[in-house]
């Protein structure tokens, strides 16, 4: 059974078709890329897969469960997590709290337990603390645990956001332009980080990225979309040489 099977996904906003008949399939363990010019509909695909939009047409089956129409938090509980193009951390909560809150689906207690401070509450809070600290330790963020994300440099904020996404224990991690706004040193660090996460957490990663160095050095398989439609798919080498892709990115005027 495939980990995720996306079939003929279409998204219309009024008269505008943002994504049209997009399909993909991952068996589990891949590192896939989704590229395309600005406004091609990449983030819309992610928004549908993460449950933020309900697709106008098409099916998404994740781990055997159809997810189209589920609330985002239910989709996340099933095992899809994501980061955002513009960092959306909770900037006035500490880094540790950011990581902790992302464990809401595995909290294991109810509001009554929180009021009454039952054994179940205490045990689960201790577990949440422990897993959050372990995650921060693994990503080398432990020394920033009490900082507010707003006070961290941009590159670190990216890393904290990825850590928060991992804290939901995903099987599939969606990274929406993780290298956007990073300087070249940070980009190199990001490539190593994504590769390390892919290996260490044994999860499937699907990323949108504009910087070709990142996509080409990380992704095993890339899909290209333009105006909401898939125009090409293949390995990085194939994509780089594909005339349709070059045309989409550079335009077809003769220079």
């Amino acid at each position: 059974m495939a980990l995720i099977d996306v079939d003929n996904l279409t998204m219309r906003f009024g008269g505008l078709t943002a994504v049209s008949e997009f399909s993909t399939r991952m068996e589990g363990g891949e590192l896939m890329g989704l590229i395309g010019p600005n406004g091609a509909g990449k983030t819309t695909v992610f928004n549908m897969v993460s449950g933020f939009y309900t697709p106008s047409e098409g099916r998404i089956v994740f781990d055997g469960t159809p997810t189209a129409g589920l609330k985002p938090h239910r989709v996340t509980t099933l095992g899809i997590s994501r980061t955002f193009q513009n960092i959306r951390l909770w900037h006035d909560l500490s880094v540790l709290d950011n990581i902790r809150i992302a464990q809401h689906s595995r909290m294991g207690y109810t509001s009554w337990d929180a009021f009454l401070r039952t054994r179940r509450f205490l045990d689960n809070e201790a577990r949440i603390d422990r897993t959050a600290l372990e995650l921060l330790e693994a990503l080398d963020l432990l020394r920033f645990k009490d900082e507010l994300p707003r006070n961290l440099p941009y590159g670190l904020q990216r890393k904290v956001e990825i850590a928060r996404a991992l804290s939901t224990k995903p099987k599939l991690l969606l990274l929406d332009e993780p290298a956007a706004g990073l300087n070249s040193a940070d980009v190199k660090g990001l490539i190593d980080l994504v590769r390390w996460i892919h290996k260490e957490f044994k999860i499937t990663i699907w990323m949108i990225e504009h910087q070709m160095t990142v996509v080409m050095s990380l992704c095993q398989y890339i899909q290209v979309i333009d105006f909401g439609r898939q125009i090409a798919a293949g390995t990085p080498e194939e994509i780089q040489k594909n005339p349709v892709v070059i045309k989409a990115y550079l335009g077809d005027d003769q220079i």
């Binding site: 993460s50 933020f52 996340t76 997590s81 809150i101 464990q103």
Partner: peptide
């Protein structure tokens, strides 16, 4: 972000 990070 809260909803997508599994907060109901």
């Amino acid at each position: 972000a809260a909803e997508i990070m599994s907060v109901n």
